[in-house]
């Protein structure tokens, strides 16, 4: 979101984008292994939102759709359900991305938190997850965790993008 890489095209960081998707999928898989990690937001979604907010030359719907379908396979949910959620959240992001780019990192984090809250509400509507006392709080705290994670994530990716030759 800094002006120093406005001139960088997304094709120049293609491998970095794919790497973030891959790492995102690995972290999302780790969340499945441990119920206490459910507080973590979907990293693949955060990665797609980051890249769509930073590069205006692409919409990243193909990436969001593909990652959503892979998430469906990973979570054993109906194929296309997560893809739909990812595309809807990405659409909301793209509608406001010009404005989003101008915000400081902390302000962006709150907008991302709002998107994650909508994602989680749609998730509940779609999949009707079984939440007990141990999982209810982590499940609904996920958007708050996203607010904390976003500045760190965007900071790292900003740094990596700026260092791209």
């Amino acid at each position: 979101m800094t002006e120093s890489f406005v001139n960088i095209r997304s094709s120049q960081v293609r491998w970095l984008i794919l790497l973030t998707y891959l790492l995102g999928l690995i972290i999302d898989s780790m969340v499945l292994l441990n119920s206490s990690l459910q507080i973590l937001p979907p990293m693949t979604l955060l990665a797609v939102l980051y890249w769509s907010g930073h590069f205006l030359d692409r919409t990243y719907f193909i990436g969001a759709f593909s990652l959503g379908v892979l998430t469906d396979a990973l979570y054993q949910t109906t194929l296309g359900a997560h893809a739909l959620l990812y595309c809807v959240i990405l659409f909301m992001m793209i509608r406001n991305r010009l404005q989003f780019r101008t915000y400081p990192s902390w302000q962006q984090a709150f907008i991302i938190g709002l998107y994650l809250l909508i994602y989680q509400a749609l998730n509940t509507l779609f999949f009707n997850p079984v939440l007990d006392d141990g999982t209810f709080v982590p499940y609904w705290s996920m958007p708050a965790a996203g607010i904390l994670i976003w500045p760190v994530l965007s900071g790292i990716l900003n740094k990596l993008t700026q260092n791209t030759p």
């Binding site: 919409t59 719907f61 193909i62 969001a64 759709f65 959503g68 379908v69 109906t78 194929l79 296309g80 359900a81 893809a83 739909l84 595309c87 809807v88 990405l90 659409f91 793209i94």
Partner: peptide
């Protein structure tokens, strides 16, 4: 346009899978 295609494709995929 891409959103509409992805949206419709997702719904078709869901219906086909379900």
């Amino acid at each position: 346009m891409q959103f509409i295609i992805a949206f419709l494709l997702s719904i078709v995929l869901m219906a086909a899978d379900h």
